[in-house]
């Protein structure tokens, strides 16, 4: 196997390892739009990072945190629906990011990679950072797992039982921000959400418990990465979109099988 393909595979697996367990919560908490908003606005973070030449991962994390805080601030208000608000933020930040990109000399060639990912150029150095992120996300998620599940079931019940709802929700949001930062140049800003929600949605009819669903989502993510990269290598299709297409095929197949069984 070629070295670059091995690295691409490892990077994809790393993303699947975190997008699986984070994705099931996205589904349960009906936050698909939220994931989109974080990843779209990350384009602005990248553009600002390039323009003022600071670390791009830091730029992405900062933009994600800014969006999360902005949303938290607006949560109390009732004059706009939260889906509307998320849509406005997602597309404004994306557009603003594209505008800022135009001020960065020679960055337009890179833009495609940020939007649709460039998994085949991942370096060993980047890989080690990605796997460090996997470890951090897993440890934090294990720590908040029970509380986050209880909050997802019912926020008030969680509050009465002494769970710090705001803190746990904030940590969960930060974990998604970390995923976005890690997955940006692997699958690209426009496709990150698909890796959060498609394997998780596929896993639902195959699972009886919450933990099981998270594990099945990881396995499905890994299969999609494997299949997508194979397709990309064989037919020279774009890597990240191929991964998403395979994930979607898995979703359609399981849905059909599930429906036929009933």
């Amino acid at each position: 196997m070629d070295d670059f393909l091995l690295r691409a595979l490892l990077a994809g697996i790393a993303v699947a390892l975190i997008s699986g367990p984070l994705g099931v919560f996205i589904l349960w908490r009906r936050m698909a739009y939220f994931g989109d908003t974080l990843s779209h606005s990350a384009v602005l973070g990248v553009a600002l990072g390039l323009l003022f030449s600071f670390n791009i991962s830091v730029g992405i994390l900062l933009s994600s945190v800014a969006v999360a805080i902005f949303l938290l601030f607006f949560q109390g208000q009732k004059t706009q629906g939260s889906d509307t608000l998320l849509g406005i933020i997602a597309h404004s930040a994306l557009s603003l990011g594209l505008v800022v990109f135009s001020f960065v000399k020679g960055a337009n060639a890179e833009l495609n990679a940020w939007l649709f990912g460039d998994i085949l150029t991942v370096t060993w150095n980047e890989l080690s950072i990605i796997f460090a992120a996997v470890v951090v996300v897993w440890i934090l998620l294990a720590l908040i797992w029970r509380s986050l599940l209880t909050i997802t079931i019912d926020e008030e019940l969680a509050k009465v039982e002494g769970i710090n709802v705001a803190l746990v929700s904030l940590i969960y949001t930060l974990l998604i921000a970390v995923l976005v930062a890690v997955a940006m140049n692997i699958v690209g800003a426009l496709l990150i959400t698909s890796l959060l929600i498609i394997p998780a949605a596929t896993a639902r009819p195959l699972s009886q418990t919450a933990k099981q669903m998270a594990v099945v989502a990881i396995v499905l993510g890994v299969i999609a990465v494997f299949g997508g990269l194979t397709a990309s290598f064989t037919w020279d299709t774009p890597a990240a979109p191929s991964i998403v297409v395979v994930a979607s095929l898995l979703f359609i197949i399981t849905q059909l099988v599930y429906r036929m069984k009933r």
Binding site: I153, D154, E161, R204, S207, A210
Partner: peptide, 27 residues
């Protein structure tokens, strides 16, 4: 103060696979 709370009703997202045993064990 440790409170055991039985709310009037809660609606659990059907997308979350949750057995009665797991739901209770969580508490």
């Amino acid at each position: 103060l440790r409170i055991g709370y039985v709310p009037q009703k809660i609606i659990i997202n059907p997308l979350m696979p949750l057995t009665v045993r797991c739901f209770i064990a969580l508490a």
